Amino acid sequence: MVTVTYSPGEHLRGFLESLASATVLPTEVIMADNGSTDGAPEAAAQEFPGARLLRTGGNIGYGGAINRAVAEIDPAAEFVVVANPDVRWKAGAIDSLLAAARRWPRAGSLGPTVLEPDGSRYPSARAVPGLLDGAGHAVLGKVWPSNRWTRAYLQETQEVSERPVGWLSGSCLLLRRRAFDSIGGFDARYFMYMEDVDLGDRLGRAGWQNLYVPDATVVHAKGHAAGKEPELMLPAHHRSAYRFQADRHPHWWQAPLRGALWAGLRLRSQVSVASAVRERRRAGRQA
């Protein structure tokens, strides 16, 4: 199992403590640390016998850190679990994913039901965003959540069933090692965000399936890292969104499209950062 740490605080303890209920199999957790300063990974490595600290040498991004840690695992391992350190495992979650992998031999990645801390279901199994529905969701998703592009992208109206989907949230994945290696792992050009969309899309293009397994469940306190530094994380999100679409529209005659996309995402990034900074200041005054 691999997780990426970046000053994860108490989240990491909850991750490791709840892991015992997720599977009957022995587990080793490689903590690929991207420069934590809170001491949590070091403390976890001392307290939990199955946790091993791997320093990446700096903040190399999520996908790059995952690739670095997976390279430490015996290539003969059939499966690798990748999960955020702010995940808490429900009983049998990993065993349910493994059972589904046996039923679906072409499943390259498998993802569980992801619950918010309040118990609501997060839309973790989605369609791969095309240019039109991706843009529609980006522009209207916050102000008009029921728009058709957002509905198509999030697939919230789909039946909750075990099924192949376009991509799965990278907050918790069971990866078939052969599939992961066959596409070169995560694309390390994505510093943060969209690396899971890209991975799912490339797996699908290579003939593998991304399988949603609702019987497996985790709780994810999402956004703890992004919330600390919105000035860095929100622009990174928008750069990743641009890279994803630009890679899929690479031709010379699509240059005007890429230019318009870049300009639109840059403007949206600036608006998002300004809004996040205002909200942080407002919260600070009320504290």
Rank of each mutant, 00 (worst) to 15 (best):
5 T>M: 14
6 Y>R: 12
6 Y>M: 08
8 P>C: 07
16 L>W: 01
17 E>I: 01
17 E>A: 12
20 A>K: 11
25 L>I: 03
33 D>F: 14
34 N>I: 09
36 S>Q: 10
39 G>T: 13
41 P>T: 03
50 G>R: 14
56 T>A: 11
58 G>I: 15
63 G>C: 04
68 R>I: 06
68 R>D: 07
72 E>L: 11
82 V>E: 13
85 P>Q: 15
85 P>R: 15
86 D>F: 05
96 S>D: 05
104 W>V: 02
106 R>K: 14
110 L>D: 02
110 L>N: 01
113 T>L: 13
113 T>D: 11
113 T>H: 05
119 G>V: 03
121 R>Y: 09
123 P>H: 15
123 P>C: 15
128 V>N: 11
138 A>R: 04
139 V>R: 05
140 L>S: 00
150 T>D: 05
154 L>F: 11
160 V>M: 13
161 S>Q: 09
167 W>E: 08
173 L>G: 02
173 L>M: 07
178 R>F: 08
183 I>D: 04
184 G>P: 02
184 G>V: 01
192 M>E: 07
193 Y>S: 12
195 E>C: 09
196 D>Y: 08
199 L>R: 02
200 G>Y: 13
204 G>S: 12
204 G>Y: 08
208 W>I: 00
209 Q>S: 15
212 Y>V: 07
213 V>T: 06
214 P>S: 10
216 A>V: 05
225 A>S: 11
246 A>G: 04
249 H>K: 04
256 P>F: 06
260 A>T: 04
265 L>V: 03
270 Q>C: 07
271 V>T: 08
272 S>K: 04
276 A>K: 08
277 V>N: 10
278 R>T: 05
